[in-house]
Amino acid sequence: MFATMLSALRSGPWAAFGLYLTASALLASNPVLGRAAAHVVPPIGLAFWRWLLAFLMILPLAIPGLLIHRHRLLAEWRRFLLLGFLGQGISGAIVYYGLERTSATNASLIYATSPVMVLVIAAVWLGDRIRPRQVAGILLAMAGVLVILTRGDVEVLRHLSFNLGDLLVLIGAVSWSVFTILLRQTRNPLPVVTSFAANALAGVLVLAPFYLWESVTVRSVPFTLPTALSLLGVALFASVLAFLAYQKAIARMGVAQASTALYVSPLWAALASWLLLGEGLEMFHLLGVLLVLPGVTLATLPSRSTAAKP
């Protein structure tokens, strides 16, 4: 009987729900850990070591796929470098620059609008159709971002004096959205672990010369025990485990349901930032949540007819 109960917990709805919560929490760990390390580890160094360690961690699982698809990977090396520049370079190092100047809560709320940005960019760039429901969601989410950028102060709009850190995180979110669209345009997608490893390695190669420049001209990464733990934490929790948990959640729940974990992650980030970093929660954060999360959900959840298709 006990074995039956354990089996039900592992394969039933509670297992899927547990994976969902785990994935959303791990996705939230990047801005929190990045903010914690921001004043100790330089931003490009943090991004470089994050993706190098993540690549080495996933490599044992990825080796078979990398060997099988090696000819295709070599043939498309320019494309992978572009993906690395967008997904690991701008969306990595630029966001860490932003986290030196803004809170993890702000960063996570701004980044939560990435699915909405994907819709907008795909509509402008590829001519994708946007339904009225999605337009309403986009306007809600963008209003939430504006509240966060202005910190709820309308006077900021008159003087156009936005926080630089928030703007850098917004650039990172836009870059991630373009990265996502380019991935979706792939005709014959690689296995997910192979793709993750290839993109991580491409990001390392793109970041390497900038990391060298930062180490020589700005400051180098201080390889102390706290720094090493920070780097390992970002690579393990925010990269490898977040990726694996999210993919497992997709396998259990489907893309439509699992993708909503992205909308829950800012709540985890706000809680962790309050508990671990001592960041205060302001009224504009609450208003941002009330606008961003329903807006993103409204814009990106599939229609009933789409969800009903096998």
Rank of each mutant, 00 (worst) to 15 (best):
P115Y: 01
L82G: 15
L86F: 04
L109M: 07
L170Q: 00
N163E: 03
L119P: 07
W176S: 08
L86N: 03
W176H: 03
S177N: 01
L160T: 12
A143D: 11
W77I: 14
S114T: 13
D128S: 02
V135I: 15
T186I: 07
A104H: 15
S103H: 09
I110S: 01
L149N: 00
I94E: 09
G92M: 14
R101E: 11
A122S: 15
Q134L: 13
R151G: 03
P132R: 14
W125A: 12
G89M: 08
V120G: 12
L140A: 10
T180Y: 01
S161N: 15
G165K: 03
L81S: 09
N188S: 00
P132L: 15
L140V: 13
V116L: 11
S161P: 13
L160Y: 10
A112E: 14
V145P: 00
Y96F: 14
A173Q: 08
W176V: 04
L119D: 08
A93S: 13
V135W: 15
Q134Y: 14
W125G: 11
R151Y: 02
V118T: 06
L74G: 10
L86D: 01
L119H: 04
D128G: 06
F80A: 04
G127I: 08
R184C: 00
N106G: 06
L83Q: 12
T105P: 11
A173H: 07
R151A: 06
